[in-house]
Amino acid sequence: MRGSVAVRALPYLLFVFFAITPALAQFGAEGYILSLVMRVMIFAIAAMSLDLILGYGAMVSFGHAAFLGIGAYGVGILMSHAVTNVLAQLVAAVAASALFALVTGALCLRTKGVYFIMITLAFGQMAFFFFVSLGVYGGDDGLTLRATPTLFGTPVFENTRVLYYVIFAAMLGVYLLLRAIVASRFGRVLRGARENPVRMQAIGFDPYRFQLAAYVIAGAICGVGGFLLAHQTEFVSPAFMTWQRSGELIVMVVLGGMGSLHGAILGAAAFIILEEVLARITEDWKLIFGPFLVLVALFARGGLVGFLRRLGGRR
């Protein structure tokens, strides 16, 4: 029973951990730790947005990193034109990624299964090559953000801790928002369509509309992740939106446990921290990381969250 309480408390524990990290980090390599954990939280946002469509909607999108890149370029392009207001950048990032999601989602969702995976991959690659070819904005090399971001004339995000808590608040907000959405009337239809689309049609729902709406919400939220990533790294580049990056986002969601939201946070943390640690131990870290992922896929059905749940004795 104690185990099961701990399992239920897992999301809270995660957020407490992220909240107190800056206090702990001052005793260590503060700058390094904070930037690593900020990266974790940003990818947690991206992975949670993917979990909405992948875990709750059964839509295996292989182009999700495109939204991360589009959100980041929303910042980069405006910055390069001296639009330093972060609210304007946020609106641009969200609007651009939502629009891209709407247009591509409307087409992708006409297909099913493997075809859906392939066409989302194709659109992701289109976005990638689009930015590679945008010479004005750095093309392949990307863009370094030299201007100072502002809010109503005052500089923001200068202080690492402030940026850290802005990212933390965004992650918490995204988590709460998605929690509400998946439980809502809308979310219930989305989950129903995941289980049995034919039954849902037979009672009068058009799964397509709900899946498309979820796709747009996921794209917009991932755009917020891109906005934050640009500010955290002070750099944007097509490398944010490679197909490998899309694959990594899927791995994060599956590793953490699909359809749980906090699993996506856990998956992003595990992925990024393991990658970091292994890369320090050996140059051939991918040789260890690959088999590890295979083991998780084979033995930890339901990902880390499912594994913890079984440890805790629920089900």
């Binding site: 509400a180 959405i181 439980a183 809502s184 009337r185 809308f186 979310g187 219930r188 239809v189 989950r191 129903g192 289980e195 049995n196 034919v198 039954r199 849902m200 037979a202 009672i203 009068g204 729902f205 709900f210 709406a213």
Partner: peptide, 29 residues
């Protein structure tokens, strides 16, 4: 053809929901 992961009540409640008001409601349980 049912939704195996939903309770019996929710299976039927979804059918009620399909004709009662909007399902584009993102908040509320």
């Amino acid at each position: 053809s049912i939704l195996p992961g939903f309770s019996a009540l929710e299976n039927v409640a979804l059918a009620v929901q399909a004709r009662e008001g909007s399902s584009f409601r993102f908040f509320g349980d």
